[in-house]
Structure formats: structure tokens, C-alpha cells
């Protein structure tokens, strides 16, 4: 059930997921938070394709899933950037520390 390629891709996917989460938790800049979300999305999408290394039959649908997932990710990112623009209008800054009036 494992080949060197499979291990490499699966580990990369997990690492992308963790790096993205780390970025979201640690960074206080709204744009960097969105970049963190995109890295998590990339990790998940890569994981869909990873399993096609073992079983070529999975490839057509896996590609279809990943393409749709990328489209959805773009929609989420654009909405998030809209919120960043609005936040900049209110605070003159995109620092999340300034946005702490609600209790996190």
C-alpha cells in the first residue's frame, strides 16, 4: 500500500495543512491569514491526488474534485479579501490585534 512517491506526497500534504494552520494561528496580518487558508486548501487538494498514485482508476474523479475545490477556494478567498478591504476602511490597518473589540 505504499510506494516512495506516495509517502512523499502524503507527507507534503500533511505538512502543507499544518503549515497553513500554523500561519493562521501565529500571524496577525489579515492577508497572511488568508494566505494560510490557501496553503491549507492546497494541502487538502494535494491529498486528493496523492491516492491516485496507488490506483490510477481514481484519477478522473480526483481531478474533477480538485478543480471544483480550487474554484470554491477562490470564492472564499475573494470574499475574505472583500472583508479585508472593509476592515481597512474601518481601522486604517489590517492588523488583527486592532480588531480585538470582540472577545476571541
Amino acid at each position: 500500500m505504499s510506494s516512495p512517491d506516495f509517502t512523499l506526497y502524503a507527507t507534503t500534504a500533511i505538512f502543507l495543512y499544518i503549515i497553513g494552520l500554523y500561519g493562521i494561528v501565529v500571524r496577525r496580518n489579515m492577508i497572511r491569514t488568508i494566505i494560510g487558508l490557501e496553503i491549507v486548501t492546497a494541502g487538502v487538494n494535494l491529498n486528493f491526488l496523492t491516492f491516485t498514485i496507488l490506483n490510477k482508476d481514481l484519477l478522473p474523479l480526483a481531478q474533477y474534485f480538485v478543480v471544483i475545490s480550487i474554484v470554491i477556494g477562490a470564492a472564499v478567498a475573494s470574499l475574505a479579501l472583500m472583508i479585508v478591504i472593509q476592515a481597512y476602511r474601518h481601522y486604517g490597518s489590517i492588523d488583527l490585534k486592532k480588531m480585538s473589540r470582540l472577545r476571541w
Binding site: 495543512y17 494552520l21 493562521i24 489579515m30 491569514t33 487558508l37 491549507v40 486548501t41 494541502g43 487538502v44 491529498n47 486528493f48 496523492t50 491516492f51 496507488l54 490506483n55 481514481l58 474523479l61 480526483a62 474534485f65 475545490s69 472564499v76 470574499l79 475574505a80 472583508i83 479585508v84 476592515a87 480588531m99 470582540l102 476571541w104
Partner: peptide, 25 residues
């Protein structure tokens, strides 16, 4: 509130999608 909701909820749905990708594999 919306930014907070978006970030947390997207992480959640991506986690579920990760589980789906393993199930699919």
C-alpha cells in the same frame, strides 16, 4: 465577526474535506 467566522468555518470545512480525501483514497 464575519472575518472570524470565515476563517474558522473554512478551516472546519477543509478538515472535513481532508477526511473525505482519505475516504476517497
Amino acid at each position: 465577526a464575519s472575518f472570524k467566522y470565515l476563517v474558522m468555518s473554512t478551516i472546519g470545512s477543509l478538515t472535513a474535506l481532508y477526511a473525505m480525501s482519505i475516504l476517497y483514497g
